[in-house]
Design a protein around this nucleic acid. Sequence first.
DNA 1: TATGAATGAGAATTCATTCAT
DNA 2: GATGAATGAATTCTCATTCAT
Lengths: 215, 215, 215, 215
Amino acid sequence: MKASSSQAGPVPLTPTDNSPPPSRRGAAARTRGLLLDSARRRFAYDGYAATTVRDIADDAGVNVALINRYFRSKEGLFEACLKAVIDELVHAARTVADLEQIPEIIVSHTAGVLAVDGPRDALLLLLRSSGDERTEQMRTGLLRTFSERLAAAAGWRPDDPTGDQLLLRAQLVLSVAFGITVLRASPGLEPLGSATEQDLTGPLRDLVEALLTRH
Amino acid sequence: MKASSSQAGPVPLTPTDNSPPPSRRGAAARTRGLLLDSARRRFAYDGYAATTVRDIADDAGVNVALINRYFRSKEGLFEACLKAVIDELVHAARTVADLEQIPEIIVSHTAGVLAVDGPRDALLLLLRSSGDERTEQMRTGLLRTFSERLAAAAGWRPDDPTGDQLLLRAQLVLSVAFGITVLRASPGLEPLGSATEQDLTGPLRDLVEALLTRH
Amino acid sequence: MKASSSQAGPVPLTPTDNSPPPSRRGAAARTRGLLLDSARRRFAYDGYAATTVRDIADDAGVNVALINRYFRSKEGLFEACLKAVIDELVHAARTVADLEQIPEIIVSHTAGVLAVDGPRDALLLLLRSSGDERTEQMRTGLLRTFSERLAAAAGWRPDDPTGDQLLLRAQLVLSVAFGITVLRASPGLEPLGSATEQDLTGPLRDLVEALLTRH
Amino acid sequence: MKASSSQAGPVPLTPTDNSPPPSRRGAAARTRGLLLDSARRRFAYDGYAATTVRDIADDAGVNVALINRYFRSKEGLFEACLKAVIDELVHAARTVADLEQIPEIIVSHTAGVLAVDGPRDALLLLLRSSGDERTEQMRTGLLRTFSERLAAAAGWRPDDPTGDQLLLRAQLVLSVAFGITVLRASPGLEPLGSATEQDLTGPLRDLVEALLTRH
DNA sequence: TATGAATGAGAATTCATTCAT
DNA sequence: GATGAATGAATTCTCATTCAT
């Protein structure tokens, strides 16, 4: 049985772009963008295999064949989504300079109302797989980068012989972020499901401090 | 493109039962069990939609049609897997009496070599969806139960007016467990990927203490 | 979609034989008979392709594999049914000596409550096909025989040069019989659906007289 | 064993439309029509269950998937066929004003060479069932309408207290039509099998007069 | 003789993708 | 650039039949 989200689209709100095609030139970029947005949501919430290219095209309000035109294939589209998400997260990782910022970063990628998200589906999509080798590696690469960045904020250095302990702890912090994301994607679990940024920040501060301070 | 695991099976090791078919009369239970085991692994690692009934049958070494015979449909099989996992987890939840036990419980469901698992794929499968309403509810029900149990170990009571804070923190602990699981399912992230139970227990103790003590 | 009759059996009444297996010897014949009865009804009402060997076995209350044991195949079973029906009808045809008997013969094979029939499904089954060449010929052979017999009662002789007219009229009489059967098999058409033998005899007398007298 | 007609198609003659596809844009209606034609023949002659969607698509010379595109399912296609047939027959029923016309109407729907038919398979298809409740009702509805129309031509009125007798006789007339159809569908029964319209009209006149005049 | 287990062929349907306009 | 039409490769499921007890 297909997910009920198939007809309605997982998050039909905030179509991101309702403006008419700006001209002849530029219409392509706009269509590409619409598809990318829809795909990202679908892939994130329903997973790669459960998502139909028709779902995506319908959400975007464009013809299915354009997916192949602009992205060569369903998998090409997935890769494009992944690339976009990774870019965002690499950027976010760079902003992590010290431990105090970590809770905030996590919260900004996991909290918020599901429907209004956009950047909120990033972590979720990162966990999805199309089964393709290349995207698998992109994913792993980012995870590594991100956890090293978190560890670095706690004093970790690549050549530190005893650094594995710290890196492991950083990856546990990362785990919380992903854990929150997957649990929030599974509806009905309160109070986590509708926790606000404020609700989460306090506990996360405790958590980060416990895991990453003086170890 | 299909997942590369399609041919090899995600983890074909430890078939759990290599014994020869016990006569023929009465072999039904064994066959059913083989299918359940294979399905559980496949669904957990590849997801519902990406898993083919043929994959499952081949892993189990039996004919595809038997899936329909014993479980009515692919979805029936998924539901059976989910039920089994939920039973295990409900049992695990019951053993949680005080905070000290929590790290151990988490570790026992998240660590261990991927290939040797069995109970280790429980959390992962719990996150998978077939899109069916009923299984969705089973999942949510368990998540609620489990988080309440964790909170209770920290002193939470259902009628406590300010208990939501504690329940939220318990759900964050649960998040870590799921987060570890999904990150370990994504191969290549070291040191988390091959962390042993000992490696994880210490940090988790800090984490549980920070989140659930005196709040 | 399968016919709703699949679970309930088209006519579960009058199992024809509820007696316990008489001995070891003789059990075979009884089982064979049970299967033949069930098959006949199923084939007649649902058609060959829509009927499942499991439907038949379940109706008869015996194991499916026995169909192959006793009749070699589904088609063998169908052929056996057809043969039985043909035997009955050949016998009926022989009793037709003059025109007055024809309405009665028709009525006895078309009227009666659907559920209680037995000989009433004969004509219906005769119209069913398994697609096999041989059964097709058996069917045609009987139809020929029967219509010649009807024509003979009206004075037709095989070598009569102008006899075709009369034979055609006899086949129209046969048509009525089959027409009544198929219309009665399609439920809800009143008053034909529940017409009694008395209701039908009068009109049929008029019909036979009009078609077969002095031409 | 499958019907021998499976490979050859029941009556592949007169494809109704040999014209080349009219451009490509807008070819949908033509394809739909081709499928409808093939389906009608197949369903009428082989029955619903014995007919394969691939048979139909091959007869029509188009891809199988288009059946689902245009009719949603095999059953949807059957329903479309039934609807078309019913429309034709309702139209035919309306033309019946007095008794003299009845033989002609019957003849026009039952005679003619099998291969050249088109409207000739209407009655046959009407007797076929997919097992679906809804189509069953459509069928019964038409049968009722049609027989009332025949009865009306003989003076029957809906509120006539003794009208059942007349209605029953009208349904016997209908029976002849269906009887002729099913007997002609079963090949090899001469002279009925190749009787022309002229051959049938005379006897049918006698029959209608005997059944429907002054009763 | 009877039965539950197992199998392989075939059926309907879905879906990503390509083609022609 | 965009679209409706068409295709072929899967995928799930059903079913007649065979096997071993």
